[in-house]
Design a protein around this nucleic acid. Structure first.
Lengths: 347, 347
DNA sequence: TCATCTTAGACAAACGTTTGTCCACTGTCT
DNA sequence: AGACAGTGGACAAACGTTTGTCTAAGATGA
C-alpha cells in the first residue's frame, strides 16, 4: 500500500530520486539501480515493479544535470553559426535537428556574427552548460575547442576537427560547363562576401574550371558581394552597376539563390528578360527556387544531408570512433527556367 | 609565488573551483565568494587579486550545471516549435535569439511536428536539462507545463501562459479593405492548414471584415491549404484547380507569402498576368517578398518583434514580474507590385 | 549445529557549486 | 590584563544523481 506513507505528492516539491525513495521506503540507490537496469544487482521483480510504477505515476524524469555531474554525457550539443534568420543555415539545422531528435539529443544554437572572440568563447560557455560536443556551421575556427568538434561547410586547419564540405570542384564544373555548353562566353562571375567560408574555395574552383575550358574571365564582369544580409539586396547593387555601365554579358553565375533573385530583379527592372536576354544560375537550391518566376536553374547543395552527416559524425566522435578528417558531399545541377541556350542575336 | 604549488595545469583536468583552490592554497568557498562578489565577506584586496588573476589565467568558467543544482537559474530557455527549416519561424527565432544573447541566456530548440505527446513531454525533458522557462511558437498548448511559459502566435486557454499575438482583426481589415478599395469584388480567400494556430483566428477575422464591408464570400472561391510544408507547393494545386474549372476571380488573399508565391506561379503557368489579370496579396512579409517578380504586396507581420517581445516577456516572468495575459502586436500593409486596381475589362 | 553463500538492500563518497556557521588571530579599548 | 570586535578564511551541508562497498537476514550445505 503506497497510501500508508506520509508524503503526499506535494505540488511544490520537485520529483527526485530521493522523493521516490522516501515515498517507497527504499534508498535512492535502489531506485537508481532499478530505473537504469544496472547489471549485477539482485533486486526482486516485485520491488522493481513498485519502483517503476511510482516513477510512472509521478512522471519522474532523472535530472540530466545531476547525472552530468557524475561524468555522464548530457546528450546535448551546441550549434555554432554566423547568423540567425532565413536561408542557408536553417536547412542545415533542419537536417541536424531531425537526426538529433531521433537520437534523443538536444541542442543549443548560438550565433556569433563572425566575431572571433565570440567564436572562441562560446565552446567554453556551452561546456559550462554541459554540452558534449560542438557542431559549427560556416565558421572560421581558429583555436581548438575543449570539446569534440565537427565543422560543416567551414574551413579550418585544426587537426582534431572533422570537416563536412561540398565538393567545390565538382560544383564549379557543373555550373560553368552548364552555361558554357549553352553557348555562353560573356559570363558574369559573382564572388561571395569575404566572411563566408565558401567564398574562397568556390572562387578558386570556378577559376580553375574556367581555365580548363579555355574560358576567358573578364575582370570587368566580376561582381563581389559585400553586404552582410540574407536578403536578395546583396546582389542588386552590383548587377545594377554592371547594367548602368553597359557591360556586355549573357549569363550570370550567382553566389547563391538569394543573390540570383536579386540579380533577376535587377535585370527585370532594367527591362532585360531572363533567360531570353540573360541566363542566371543560382546556387544552393533553396525551397523557393523552383517557385520563382522564372524558376531558378541552380546547383543544388544537399544542405539537409550536410546537416545530418555532420550530426552523425559528431555522434560517432562522441562514441570515440575514428573518423576521416574530411567528408565530401556531392552537388547536383538542377536545370529550370532561368538559364537558356544563347540566342544568335546576342553573340 | 604560485610556482611552489605542486599542481601544474594538467591538460586533462577540468578547471574547477577546487582546482583553483588547491592551486592558490585557498578553500573553494573563498574563491566562490571572490568571483561572485558575495557581499558581507571580508577578503583583502590582495587575495581577491590573486584569485581573479588565476581565474583569468586558467580561463575558468563556473559550471552552470553545479550552480543550477543549488537552485540558481541556468540562464537557459527552451523554444518549442512545430517544424524546422525556412520561413516564418526562423524570423521569430532570430528576434528571440538576439534578445537572449544580449541577456546572456542560451536556448534549446525542439520541434514537435504538431504531435500532442511531444508537446506534452518536451517541457519536462527540457526541465531535466535545467531550462528555466519555455517559449512556444505556433503551438497548441493543452496541458500546463512545470515551467514558466510564454506563447507566441499560438492559442491556449491556460491561465498561466502569456500569449503574444498579432492583431488579427486589424490584419484582416488591412487586407480585405486594400483589395476592396482597388475595386475587387470576386476575391479568392485562402484558408491556412488546420494545424496552424493562426488559421482559425484569421479566418474568423477575415469573414467578419468581409461581412462589415458587405462583400460576398463565394463558397466556390475558397481555397483551403492542406499540405504540411513550408514551400510554395502548398498553394499551387488549389489555385491550379480553380483555374482548371474556370472560376471567375480578380484577386487572391493568400494565407502567407509562401503560398502567394505558389499562387503567382500557378497563375503564371496558366498565362494569367499578375497583377494585370489577378491581384495577389501575401501575408508575413518574408525577406524575399520584395524581390519576387512581381514583388509581393503583403500584410507585414512583425515577426522579429514578436520574437523579441515574447523573449522579453519570458525574462520578466522569470523575474517574477506581473504580466498581462495577452500582448498584441500590430500588422502593416505593404503595397508593392502584385496588387493593382481592377481593370474595367475584368469587371 | 555452525560455517558459508545468497539475497536485498542500505550507506557513503563523489561530481562542482553556494552559503550558513564557525574559528583563530590580531588589534583596540578599558 | 582582560574583554571584545573585527578580519580572513576554513568547514560542512546541500543540490540530485551514480556506483563501489558493506551488512543483516535468510537459505544452503556438511
Amino acid at each position: 500500500m503506497t497510501k500508508t506513507f506520509p508524503n503526499p505528492p506535494r505540488k511544490s516539491r520537485h520529483i527526485s530520486l530521493k522523493f521516490l525513495a522516501e515515498h517507497l521506503g527504499l534508498s535512492p540507490s535502489t531506485i537508481s539501480y532499478v530505473l537504469n537496469d544496472t547489471p549485477g544487482r539482485s533486486i526482486p521483480e516485485a520491488t522493481r515493479d513498485r519502483v517503476r510504477k511510482a516513477a510512472a505515476e509521478f512522471n519522474y524524469k532523472p535530472s540530466m544535470i545531476a547525472r552530468t555531474l557524475q561524468g555522464k554525457p548530457m546528450q546535448t550539443i551546441g550549434i555554432l553559426l554566423p547568423e540567425l534568420g532565413e536561408g542557408y543555415h536553417s536547412q542545415v539545422i533542419s537536417g541536424i535537428g531531425d537526426l538529433l531528435m531521433e537520437r534523443g539529443y538536444f541542442y543549443f544554437t548560438v550565433h556569433h556574427r563572425h566575431k572571433p572572440e565570440l567564436i572562441n568563447d562560446y565552446p567554453r560557455l556551452l561546456q559550462a552548460r554541459g554540452v558534449d560536443g560542438i557542431l559549427a556551421i560556416d565558421t572560421h575556427l581558429e583555436h581548438s575547442s575543449p570539446l569534440p568538434t565537427v565543422l560543416i561547410a567551414g574551413e579550418t586547419n585544426l587537426r582534431e576537427v572533422t570537416n563536412v564540405v561540398l565538393d567545390h570542384e565538382q560544383a564549379a564544373r557543373l555550373s560553368v560547363e552548364h552555361l558554357y555548353n549553352l553557348g555562353h562566353r560573356k559570363i558574369v562571375f559573382m564572388k561571395g562576401q569575404s566572411f563566408s567560408t565558401d567564398t574562397q574555395l568556390r572562387w578558386e574552383a570556378t577559376m580553375h574550371v574556367a581555365r580548363e575550358l579555355g574560358l576567358a574571365v573578364d575582370e570587368r564582369l566580376i561582381v563581389e558581394l559585400a553586404i552582410d544580409s540574407t536578403s536578395p539586396e546583396i546582389s542588386y547593387p552590383g548587377i545594377h552597376a554592371l547594367i548602368e555601365r553597359r557591360a556586355q554579358f549573357t549569363a550570370v553565375i550567382c553566389f547563391n539563390d538569394v543573390s540570383a533573385m536579386g540579380t533577376i530583379r535587377a535585370l527585370h527592372d532594367a527591362s532585360f528578360h531572363v533567360p531570353n536576354d540573360v541566363s542566371v544560375l543560382g546556387f544552393d537550391d533553396i525551397q523557393s527556387a523552383s517557385y520563382q518566376v522564372p524558376s531558378l536553374s541552380t546547383i543544388r547543395q544537399p544542405l539537409k544531408l550536410m546537416g545530418s552527416t555532420g550530426a552523425e559524425a559528431l555522434m560517432r566522435k562522441l562514441a570515440d570512433e575514428e573518423l576521416p578528417a574530411l567528408i565530401r558531399v556531392q552537388p547536383e545541377l538542377i536545370v529550370r527556367e532561368s538559364t537558356a541556350r544563347l540566342r544568335r542575336s546576342h553573340q
